[in-house]
């Protein structure tokens, strides 16, 4: 089993939710993840929470990375989390959020089940290491 988990390819969905049109960060992350040996699915811009839920469930990704720069995270993230819960995907998906998330909003997001939040300036390696370390064990 241990040999298998070493070989296992980590699958990630990088998702842009909501109306902000800036995806340079999402692109950079996608590329860095790919170069780290992950399989990356990029959602494209302006996705609704429903689409993200559909993609996360169907693709059975280990990691969902949500990028939000619009400030709507308090509305959008809970919707995504509720959808994951509905399809039984919340427990074994690592959810990370990137973008502009004010300090005072973070506790509530962690409460929702977000595993980590990476703000601007986070070194790429830090994010990659976090994912490698925390990618869920699949039964």
């Amino acid at each position: 089993m241990s040999a298998d988990s070493e070989q296992r390819t980590i699958r990630c969905l990088i998702a842009k939710v909501g109306l902000d049109g800036h995806d340079r960060g999402a692109h950079v992350i996608s590329r860095a993840f790919r170069d780290a040996g992950f399989e990356v699915i990029y959602s494209g811009l302006h996705r609704a929470p429903d689409e993200i839920i559909q993609a996360t469930v169907q693709e059975d990704v280990d990691v969902l990375g949500i990028s939000i720069l619009s400030g709507a995270h308090n509305t959008l993230v809970p919707k995504v989390m509720a959808g994951l819960e509905e399809y039984g995907a919340l427990d074994d998906t690592l959810v990370i959020v990137g973008g502009i998330i004010p300090e005072e909003d973070r506790p509530a997001l962690f409460e929702e089940g977000v595993d980590a939040i990476f703000g601007p300036g986070t070194p790429m390696q830090e994010t990659i290491d976090f994912v490698k370390e925390h990618a869920p064990e699949r039964p």
């Binding site: 993840f33 990356v40 699915i41 990029y42 959602s43 693709e59």
Partner: peptide
């Protein structure tokens, strides 16, 4: 690296959320 960017999903615009 074994890594990949799987991008086709982006064009499934007619069936979102279905």
């Amino acid at each position: 690296t074994g890594g990949a960017v799987l991008g086709d999903r982006i064009r499934m615009a007619s069936n979102v959320g279905d």
